[in-house]
């Protein structure tokens, strides 16, 4: 049984100017102790997907349909209290901006210790003790429990956010661009930290716009475009043998230190999700488009074992 199984998930934003189909019929599987990265441009729905898993899609967004099975139970049909007890305990989440994801008025230690008091029911003194130990695990000194968030740097804050997310050793850590707001050197140490938790058995759902970063440490990569999953496979399959033109485009926009390749960007812009183009949503920007592309939507098909792609060129008809 896979750890997390997203099946036919649709998340729409009901705005005044129309319905934005941010996540449109996406299915995805994450196994035990597996690192899956979701890659895509901003606005492709990758973050919304992550919020969907923890049921925190901000209004006017709503989960319209689909199932999210976590260890055999559907997260979407749980009542609030049952779901709350899973959040933090079995699923941890780290957000993009460390500067704003901690409560500015409470000491770091209290915010970490709260995980233990809330989910394990132990008293505050013991919880603070454990909080101190945990800070050491993420590479900070125990004394930091007495600090307020504003006294810490971005990297330090992100360590604390990760410490809180991992405090109860959840089975799944969802990280929404956790390094985007940080500088490159700090980025690396944060990635090391996350990888360390993965080695201890946690599965990672990693959201990023940076394909190179995802390729570095993931087991599998899912590529999203305009609310759709367009390609999914192991890192080797997706990076060395990309099947979807969009994935190819993303790979070409990554500089290669050892090759003579020029950086090429994909021409055009992602579509307006209130009124996406018919057929394959990528077809207006695609160099290889055929008639079929603008008429009918391609399904996700398995091109080799564990490697899925949604493109007419790879379907039986296309070749």
């Amino acid at each position: 049984m896979p750890l997390l199984e997203i099946d036919g998930l649709r998340i729409y934003y009901y705005t005044l100017s129309g319905i934005v189909k941010a996540v449109d019929n996406v299915s995805l599987v994450i196994g035990e102790n597996e690192w899956v990265s979701i890659v895509g441009e901003s606005g492709c729905g990758k973050s919304t997907l992550a919020y969907g898993v923890v049921r925190l899609v901000p209004p006017p967004g709503r989960i319209v349909s689909g199932r999210i099975m976590f260890r055999g139970r559907n997260l979407l049909s749980m009542d609030r209290e049952e779901f709350r007890s899973i959040l933090g305990r079995e699923i941890g989440m780290v957000f993009q901006d460390p500067m704003t994801s901690l409560d500015p008025l409470r000491r770091v230690g209290d915010q970490v210790a709260e995980m233990f008091t809330t989910h394990l029911g132990i008293d505050r003194g013991e919880a603070l003790e454990k909080a101190g130990e945990l800070l050491e695990v993420v590479g900070l000194s125990r004394d930091y429990i007495n600090y307020y968030p504003h006294q810490l740097s971005g990297g330090q804050r992100q360590r604390i956010s990760i410490a809180i997310a991992m405090s109860l050793k959840p089975k799944l850590l969802i990280a929404d661009e956790p390094t985007t707001a940080l500088d490159v050197i700090v980025q690396d140490t944060i990635m090391d930290l996350i990888e360390g938790f993965k080695r201890e058995g946690t599965s990672i759902l990693f959201i990023t716009h940076d394909l190179a970063l995802a390729a570095e440490r993931s087991d599998k990569i899912a590529v999203m475009y305009a609310g759709k999953l367009v390609e999914f496979g192991t890192v080797d399959q997706v990076v060395d043998n990309p099947q979807h033109p969009y994935t190819m485009g993303l790979l070409h926009s990554v500089p290669d230190l050892w090759g003579p390749r020029r950086i090429e960007s994909i021409p055009g812009y992602p579509p307006d999700l209130r009124d996406p183009p018919p057929g394959c949503r990528f077809h207006p920007r695609c160099r290889f488009r055929i008639d079929m592309c603008s008429r009918e939507e391609p399904e996700l098909i398995e091109v080799e074992e564990g490697h899925y792609v949604a493109c007419w060129l790879r379907s039986s008809g296309g070749g």
């Binding site: 923890v54 925190l56 901000p58 709350r84 007890s85 899973i86 959040l87 933090g88 305990r89 941890g92 989440m93 957000f95 901006d97 704003t100 994801s101 901690l102 409560d103 500015p104 008025l105 409470r106 709260e114 995980m115 809330t118 989910h119 956010s161 809180i164 997310a165």
Partner: peptide, 19 residues
Amino acid sequence: DFIRSYRARGIRDWKITIY
């Protein structure tokens, strides 16, 4: 963000309201 973070950590609603 920090309110959303609180929710993602499974903190009880009434506590979040107080914070």
